[in-house]
Design a protein around this nucleic acid. Structure first.
Lengths: 73, 73
DNA sequence: GGGCTGTATCGACCACGGACGATGAGTCAC
DNA sequence: GTGACTCATCGTCCGTGGTCGATACAGCCC
């Protein structure tokens, strides 16, 4: 599984765990909704500065976003 | 310290630990020498796919590149 | 039915990521 | 001195990252 897939799953999991939809999450943290959608589909290739902004938004360390996500079907 | 600085220090440390110069490292792993130089100076903002390629080149997990580097003066 | 929320997906735009060449400075050994 | 090696830095170029608007399609509730 490549980095984008891991980021996709982690972002979706952590965002949903905070009870936020893509649009609300994007709006609150200064991203574009279509961009968040693209990341969660694994089709986007964000830079590490975006990665850091995501980590701050989710209040997790940056590494957390890149780890192999917990086994979930 | 922002992500780029942490990446810069980790890349330089790990690359040197492998006894490689910037140019040799770049050449062997399909990067441009000036690009590696830019990353190690913290002025570049690579994408996560590049991050993954760097991790593979250095044979470390991706998270390793983003961690706060060991205290070194 | 019509309204909402959440997501996916498209086209277009501009700024920047990433590759390349050339130059220069520093340290070595000769 | 000249050479070899390592690194920093510049300018240029193309592709894509990142933003925006619009559309579409579910599910749910009125």
């Amino acid at each position: 599984m490549d980095v984008r897939q891991r980021l996709a799953l982690n972002l979706r999991r952590l965002r949903q765990a905070r009870g936020l939809g893509q649009e609300k999450f994007a709006l609150e943290h200064g991203f574009d909704r279509t961009y968040i959608s693209g990341i969660e589909r694994g089709v986007r290739n964000p830079t590490i500065l975006v990665l850091e902004r995501l980590a701050i938004a989710l209040e997790v360390p940056v590494e957390e976003l890149l780890k192999a996500p917990p086994e979930r079907a």
